[in-house]
Design a protein around this nucleic acid. Structure first.
Lengths: 160, 160
DNA sequence: TATTGTTATACTCTATAACTATA
DNA sequence: TATAGTTATAGAGTATAACAATA
């Protein structure tokens, strides 16, 4: 039993620290932004959908679904809600009429901007006394990591 | 309309980049770890509960709930499952018999270790060519941010 | 045939309210 | 009276399967 445990030493503590911190931060931030989301009458999931529709720029629904790591039907339902709220519009692409392109409405852009403003305030306050260089390094490291992780984008979800 | 938009400039782009990257990374990582979770027969939520039970060291259920940013009943249900799976044990504290302390079983420790090993592998692979110093800086920045954000731990959830 | 999106349906997760027991 | 935990129940969120339209 003891032997079995020693065959499973804690892996690189830096990784656990990093992932644990990341998880904790994201939770804290999103938790604090919750009131702002309620004020805009949208859910967390809708916010991230809005974010990817905005940042991917007129891509099809399934592309957005892939970035959200959600199934197409889930995203389809979310888009229904965002469309009903007047934040997003669908329209068929001409060159391939199977594809439904998504775009933010002006209202959608405003809502997204307000929410990022809120997040920036929360994070900015916490990052207040973090040296600018260190913060810039952290941003760069995370962009690199994301690029590397997204690079071999996870296949739809093949088992194991 | 244009004027209204210009009153809402994109906030500090570094913050949006950072939070966006963090969100993307966490999603990628957790998505990739999904098969390992399935192999251990536990859900993502159960994994994080396991993590906090392990890292908080014999704290009560509601403390764990606060760290998970979940309601007590939700965590209570999760602990039921973890206990049924033989990963966690409950026992009443003697000094205050209202409190239910939580601890990992040896099996729970092994499962947690294996999953962190998997996460470390995934992240480690992506972090392969990131300079060690930069990675260390990122870890430090995130620990600071988390400490700052957790510091004024979000109250139970007062509206607005 | 393969792909994009949608609809129908069931399951998991989470929360609020009400209850028990300790303090 | 207040706090820790549990039970009961309802609501979001998500997935899989089956379908429609287009390539």
């Amino acid at each position: 039993m003891v032997a079995a445990l020693s065959e499973l030493p804690r892996p690189d503590p830096a990784v656990e620290e990093l992932v644990g911190s990341v998880h904790g931060i994201l939770q804290s931030v999103l938790h604090r932004v919750h009131p702002a989301l309620e004020a805009e009458r949208i859910s967390m999931g809708q916010f991230w959908a809005l974010h990817f529709v905005a940042s991917l720029g007129s891509k099809g629904l399934s592309t957005v679904a892939r970035y959200l790591a959600l199934s197409a039907p889930s995203v389809c339902a979310k888009v229904d809600e965002l469309e009903a709220a007047g934040l997003v519009v669908r329209h068929r692409a001409e060159r391939d009429r199977r594809i439904v392109e998504l775009r933010l409405t002006p209202k959608g852009r405003k809502v997204e901007a307000r929410l990022w403003e809120e997040i920036a305030t929360v994070v900015g306050r916490a990052a207040d006394d973090v040296p600018r260089d260190d913060l810039a390094t952290a941003v760069r490291v995370f962009q690199d990591l994301r690029a590397r992780l997204d690079g071999a984008t996870v296949p739809p979800r093949s088992g194991a």
